[in-house]
């Protein structure tokens, strides 16, 4: 056997292999729209970093975090969480530091309407998409995801009016605010107050901030009940702190007599309290589905490719009434780890 024949053989083999390869590859070049979509999705989101700074990691924020992490992990994205543990100065530090780290998307929950206002603008100027969750800032950013807060206030207030207005009972209503300067609390209380004012028989006897704190809410409620033993209803902007108010009502022996309307993020305790009769009605916006909405907003921004700060989008979540055990579906469950 000569060397020449080996050469010929191998050249023929190479040619055959080349033809075969060309034959199998050719159909791939033709556009498969679904694969192309997938490729462009991957290109837009994979490996991207999302930074998330909640006010703290409570039940609500942990649920958002859990849902986000599950999705972002699935898409091959990185989620960075910074927990300031309810300290606004630390939160500002965290956000400022993150801007320097240049994540692709920054998600924040604003403790007050002004605290992060300047930094959020700076973040967008630095080319970071900014998403705000539930608690908004004075600065509008690429996306707001969360409850339609004034709507929550109006819905709750309408029910309060239906219950206490029109000359039924004393007509005395108290509003429990959260943090006075937080947009969520401010806007909800404002919208609720406007609705309450439409019925002249309703008397708003108190509208005080409880700072998201059950103890403080309990203290406020105790005082209000002492001054107004014939209180008709309490409208509270957030569930967990209302537990303290409900307890105060119960301690005063007025459970059932004083109606408690709560804007709820759907955490299990809110439904438990309702089932125990401590809350009268919850208006739940379900943090778990909100989590998914946040993810979708992020995906939208990343795929859209607009310059950060060029559009201001809103993703309002839907509210569900929780009136009894049957509405348990509108409270989320916290999976055991």
């Amino acid at each position: 056997m000569s060397k020449g024949s080996i050469f010929v053989k191998s050249a023929a083999a190479a040619l055959a292999a080349g033809l075969l390869a060309a034959a199998t590859l050719t159909p791939a070049r033709a556009a498969d729209p679904r694969e192309e979509l997938h490729a462009s999705f991957e290109k837009a989101v994979k490996g991207k970093t999302v930074a998330w700074v909640p006010v703290w990691l409570g039940v609500l924020e942990s649920t958002w975090t859990r849902v986000m992490k599950a999705h972002f992990d699935d898409y091959g994205m990185k989620l960075v969480v910074r927990d300031p543990n309810f300290k606004s100065d630390v939160q500002l530090q965290a956000v400022s530091t993150l801007i320097n780290e240049k994540p692709d998307v920054l998600i924040v929950q604003n403790p007050t309407a002004n605290l992060l206002a300047r930094e959020l603008k700076r973040a967008m100027d630095a080319g970071i998409y900014v998403v705000q969750v539930n608690m908004a800032s004075n600065t509008l950013t690429d996306a707001y995801v969360g409850a339609d807060v004034p709507k929550l206030g109006r819905m709750l207030a309408k029910d309060v009016v239906a219950e206490c207005g029109g000359g039924k009972g004393s007509g005395k209503v108290a509003i429990l605010e959260g943090e006075a300067t937080a947009a969520y609390s401010l806007d909800m209380a404002k919208a609720a107050t406007e609705v309450l004012k439409t019925d002249p028989t309703i008397k708003l006897v108190s509208s005080q901030p409880a700072n998201w704190d059950a103890n403080k809410a309990g203290d406020i409620t105790t005082t209000v009940l002492q001054q107004h033993p014939d209180l008709c209803a309490i409208l509270s902007v957030w569930g967990p702190m209302t537990a303290g108010a409900a307890q105060a009502v119960k301690n005063a022996g007025k459970q059932g007599q004083v109606k408690i309307y709560v804007a709820s993020d759907g955490q299990p305790a809110d439904c438990d309290l309702l089932e125990q009769g401590l809350f009268t009605k919850n208006l739940s916006y379900r943090a778990d589905t909100q989590g998914e909405a946040i993810v979708n907003a992020v995906l939208g921004l990343l795929q859209n490719g607009d310059k950060p700060g060029s559009k201001k989008l809103a993703y309002y979540t839907t509210n569900y009434w929780v009136k009894s055990k049957d509405d348990r579906a509108y409270c989320f469950t916290v999976p055991k780890e």
Partner: peptide, 12 residues
């Protein structure tokens, strides 16, 4: 602090 944060929260 006021100049930097522009905010007066309950936790300040």
């Amino acid at each position: 602090y006021a100049a930097r944060q522009n905010s007066s929260g309950t936790d300040t």
